[in-house]
Amino acid sequence: MSPNNDAAPGNNLPIEIDYDNIDVGRIMEAIKSKVAQEVGRETDETLTESPGTASGTPQAAETDSLSEQAGRRTGMKRLLLRIMSPFAPLIKLVILPVYEEQRQTLLSLHNTNKRLDALVSMLHEEIEKNNRNREYTKLLHHLVHNIVVEMSKLKIEEETLKTKTRLMEKDFEILTKRERALEKEIFK
C-alpha cells in the first residue's frame, strides 16, 4: 500500500488516494467534502465582504471616519445604516450567491414535487376506490354466505319432503291392499 497525496487545483486540500487499491467511492466522498468546504468558505467570505450592516464592523468604522470628514452627509448615511440594521439578516440573505446548480436542483425538485403531488392525489383516489371495492367484496361475501345457508335449508327440506312422499306412497300401497282385501270379503 502506498498512499499518496494529490491536490486538485480547485483548492489546497489534499485528496488521499491509495493507488494500489483504488476506491472510487472514497475518492468521490473526498471530492464532495472538498466542494462542500469550498462552498461554505465562499459563503462566509461573501457575508464578511457585504456592506456594513451593524456597528463595530470595519465598514462601520470606515463610515465613522468618513462622517468626520464629510459631516452632515455622512451623518445621514450613519442614520440610514442604523435604521437598516434590523433588516441586516434579510439583506444578508438577499446578497447570498445563488448557484446555478442549486437553482437547477431546486427547479428539478419543484417539478418532482409537482409530479409527486399529482401521484399522491391519484394514490388517494386509488385507496378510496380500493376501500369501496373492499366493502363491496364484503357484501358479496355475505350474500354468497346467505345463499349457501338458504340452499342448505332447501336441500334439507327437499330431503324431508322426499321422505314424506315415500311414506305416503307406502301408506297408499297398504290402503290399496286393504281395499282389495275388503272388496274380496264383500263379494264372497
Binding site: A7, G10, I27, V35
Partner: peptide
C-alpha cells in the same frame, strides 16, 4: 454539478 466536475476532472488530469 460543476464544482464536482471541476474537482474530478482536475484530479484526473493531474
Amino acid at each position: 454539478n460543476y464544482l464536482e466536475f471541476r474537482e474530478a476532472l482536475s484530479l484526473l488530469l493531474q
